[in-house]
Amino acid sequence: MTSAAPTTPAEYWDKYKPHRGQGDQPRPPARAFDWTGLADGGPGAELLRSPATALDLGPAEGENAAVLARAGVEVTAVDFSAVQVERARRFWEGEPRLTFVHAEACAYLDQGTDRFDAIYSTWGAVWFTDPEDLFPRVAARLAPGGVFAFSHREPVVGQYGAQEMGGKWLEGRETELTVWRWQYGPEQWADILKRHGFTAVHTQVLTNPDPAALGTLLITATTAP
C-alpha cells in the first residue's frame, strides 16, 4: 500500500527516512563527527572548540550528537519530526549526556534562557529555517564567545534565498505541500551572520569526491566574548 503524501513539513520529515519501502534501518555508526554525510575525513568536532554544552538543530538519526555526547559534551538535539526523534531516542538509548527534544527550532530557542557553548546544524534545521527568524534566536542562546556552525549542500550559482524543494515524498504527487530551504553563497551567509551580531565568520566549500556532484558549504561564526 502506498503511503499518503505528507501535508505538513513535519510530516515530510517524518517520512523522509526510511524511504522507498526500505523499512526501518539499523543504528548508524557514530565514529566521528561529520559535516558532509560522505565520511570523507574532512573537518570534525574540533570546529566547535571543545564545548561543555551543545545544541544540535535537526539531528535526524543523531549520530553527530552521539559522537559529542560520548566525548563528554552535554548535548540537546532538537527535531520537529516526531518520527525522527523517536527513532533517535531508540538508537541512542542509554547515552547519559544526550537528550532528544521534539520541537521546532525557533520555538525551542524561544522557550528557555540557558545558553550553549556551541549550536550547530549539519544539513539540518538551519538549511530549512528562515535565517531572519532563526539567527537572532541562536545568538540569544549562545554563550559569550560560543560557536555557531552549520553545513548544507553547496548552492548552485544564482539559486539563492528561499528555494522550493522537491524530494522523494514530493515528486510526482498532487499535493499543496511546499518545503523550503534557505541557501546562500559564502559571502551572502557571512553578511547575514554579521548583520545579526556574529563575528569571526569563516566559510569553506568541501568538495565532493565525485567531480560531477556538488560539495558541502560549511560555515562557522562566534558571538562576542
Rank of each mutant, 00 (worst) to 15 (best):
residue 158 G to Y: 07
residue 84 Q to G: 11
residue 131 P to C: 01
residue 27 R to C: 12
residue 182 W to D: 11
residue 31 R to Q: 15
residue 177 L to S: 07
residue 109 L to M: 10
residue 37 G to T: 03
residue 120 Y to H: 13
residue 104 E to N: 05
residue 180 W to M: 09
residue 183 Q to G: 10
residue 9 P to R: 06
residue 66 A to G: 03
residue 11 E to G: 07
residue 113 T to W: 12
residue 203 T to H: 10
residue 6 P to V: 00
residue 16 Y to P: 00
residue 99 T to A: 12
residue 46 E to A: 00
residue 121 S to R: 15
residue 71 A to D: 12
residue 211 P to A: 09
residue 189 W to S: 02
residue 179 V to I: 13
residue 186 P to Y: 02
residue 77 A to P: 02
residue 196 H to K: 13
residue 95 E to Q: 05
residue 222 T to F: 01
residue 28 P to H: 12
residue 159 Q to Y: 01
residue 99 T to M: 09
residue 1 M to N: 02
residue 47 L to D: 01
residue 212 A to Y: 11
residue 158 G to A: 03
residue 136 P to T: 07
residue 30 A to L: 14
residue 176 E to Q: 12
residue 224 A to T: 10
residue 220 T to S: 13
residue 197 G to Q: 02
residue 114 D to Q: 12
residue 47 L to M: 03
residue 163 Q to V: 15
residue 178 T to Q: 08
residue 59 P to Y: 04
residue 158 G to Q: 05
residue 22 Q to L: 07
residue 212 A to W: 08
residue 214 L to W: 09
residue 210 D to W: 10
residue 29 P to S: 15
residue 110 D to M: 09
residue 139 A to E: 01
residue 107 A to Y: 05
residue 58 G to A: 15
residue 97 R to V: 00
residue 91 F to N: 05
residue 168 K to S: 12
residue 38 L to I: 04
residue 59 P to T: 06
residue 56 D to Q: 14
residue 216 T to C: 09
residue 13 W to S: 01
residue 60 A to Y: 14
residue 98 L to S: 08
residue 20 R to N: 08
residue 125 A to V: 03
residue 214 L to D: 08
residue 119 I to C: 07
residue 225 P to N: 14
residue 19 H to E: 11
residue 179 V to Y: 03
residue 123 W to H: 12
residue 155 P to F: 03
residue 225 P to S: 14
residue 52 A to K: 09
residue 209 P to H: 07
residue 18 P to T: 08
residue 177 L to T: 07
residue 86 E to F: 11
residue 209 P to L: 07
residue 116 F to W: 11
residue 176 E to K: 13
residue 32 A to C: 13
residue 91 F to L: 03
residue 61 E to I: 13
residue 220 T to Q: 12
residue 14 D to H: 00
residue 69 A to Q: 03
residue 52 A to C: 04
residue 51 P to Y: 06
residue 219 I to Y: 08
residue 160 Y to Q: 09
residue 180 W to L: 12
residue 65 A to S: 15
residue 212 A to S: 14
residue 75 V to R: 00
residue 150 F to H: 13
residue 222 T to L: 04
residue 156 V to W: 02
residue 142 L to A: 08
residue 194 K to L: 12
residue 13 W to M: 01
